[in-house]
């Protein structure tokens, strides 16, 4: 079950022409369900686990999970997008937490960064 939607946080990016996760997914897998107004993944087995949706979600409402057939319950990896930095918080199945933070952009002349989190 690669992208797991935290439905209490997801609002389907109400008001936007396209939700952030359906915009980001390179496989066209994310869709906002017309009935519930929440995002869902059409087909979890087609997910590459690239985490583009997880990075793009403005409400941290998407968690990427490794399919159970490959990895045990439950670990988490959460990206926090900054302007020129990214921070990752990882918790393994034993509860050990590790944080990684590094620069992912050099400052350059003004450019429109549309691939960022709020």
């Amino acid at each position: 079950m690669p992208p797991r939607i935290l439905t209490e946080k997801c609002n389907g990016c109400e008001g936007l022409p396209e939700s952030r996760c359906e915009e980001a997914c390179p496989g066209n897998l994310m869709v906002v369900d017309a009935a519930t107004g929440k995002a869902r993944c059409r087909c979890t087995r087609d997910c590459w686990d690239c985490m583009s949706c997880t990075k793009a979600c403005p409400r941290a409402a998407i968690e990427t999970r490794i399919p159970y057939q490959l990895g045990y319950h439950k670990a988490s990896l959460r990206p926090i997008m900054g302007k020129e930095h990214i921070t990752w918080k990882c918790v393994d199945i034993h509860g050990v937490e590790t944080t990684y933070k590094y620069r992912n952009r050099l400052a350059v002349a003004p450019a429109t960064q549309t691939d960022k989190n709020a």
């Binding site: 690239c50 985490m51 490959l70 990895g71 045990y72 319950h73 439950k74 988490s76 393994d92 034993h94």
Partner: peptide, 10 residues
């Protein structure tokens, strides 16, 4: 997600 994979293997 490879980092997540290693975490999910502990």
């Amino acid at each position: 997600s490879f980092v997540l994979f290693l975490a999910s293997r502990g």
